Simulated assay, not measured.
Amino acid sequence: MLKMKQSCERCSAPLRLIDQAYICSFECTFCPACSERLEKTCPNCQGELVLRPPRKSSPTEAASPRFKAKLEKILG
């Protein structure tokens, strides 16, 4: 499951689940302004920064009992 980080790793700008953000394949997370300054290249791994998919809510908020059970089994 994609980890939705709460802030930009470069400038610490807050990033809500629905905010636009950019990530690399290692889930390094940057705000749009920092991503542009970095020319959409991750400074940590040199990978491409791509648009992070938005979420309306955390998967554990208002999740179905079946989904919660599956998560609990995975996270153990």
Results as ranks from 00 to 15, higher is better:
Pro59Trp: 11
Glu39Val: 03
Ala63Asn: 13
Leu15Cys: 03
Glu48Met: 07
Phe30Ala: 00
Phe30Gly: 00
Thr60Lys: 07
Leu15Arg: 01
Met4Asn: 13
Met1Ile: 12
Arg10Val: 09
Ser25Arg: 04
Cys28Phe: 04
Ala62Leu: 10
Lys56Arg: 11
Lys70Tyr: 15
Cys42Ser: 06
Ala33Phe: 11
Ala21Gly: 06
Thr41Asp: 00
Val50Ser: 01
Phe30Glu: 00
Pro53Ala: 07
Glu61Met: 06
Gln46Met: 04
Ala69Thr: 11
Thr60Ala: 09
Arg52Gly: 04
Leu71Arg: 07
Tyr22Phe: 15
Cys8His: 09
Arg37Val: 02
Arg37Ala: 13
Asp19Thr: 03
Ser64Met: 14
Lys56Glu: 13
Lys73Asn: 05
Tyr22Thr: 08
Leu51His: 03
Cys31Gln: 03
Asp19Phe: 01
Ser7Gln: 15
Cys8Gly: 03
Gln46Arg: 15
Ala62Gly: 13
Ser35Ala: 15
Ser12Tyr: 12
Leu15Val: 08
Ile74Asn: 06
Val50Pro: 00
Pro53Tyr: 03
Arg37Lys: 13
Arg10Asp: 12
Lys56Gly: 07
Arg66Thr: 14
Ser64Ala: 15
Leu17Met: 09
Thr29Arg: 03
Glu27Gly: 05
Gln6Tyr: 12
Leu71Ile: 15
Pro43Leu: 06
Ile18Ala: 10
Gln6Trp: 11
Cys11Gln: 08
Lys3Tyr: 12
Lys73Val: 12
Ala63Cys: 15
Cys42Glu: 02
Ser57Gln: 13
Arg52Asn: 06
Ser25Tyr: 08
Leu17Lys: 09
Lys70Cys: 13
Glu9His: 09
Glu48Tyr: 00
Leu15Asn: 01
Ala63Gly: 15
Arg66Asp: 09
Phe30Ser: 01
Thr29Ala: 01
Lys70Val: 13
Ala63Leu: 09
Glu27Leu: 05
Cys31Ser: 08
Ala63Pro: 05
Pro43Gln: 04
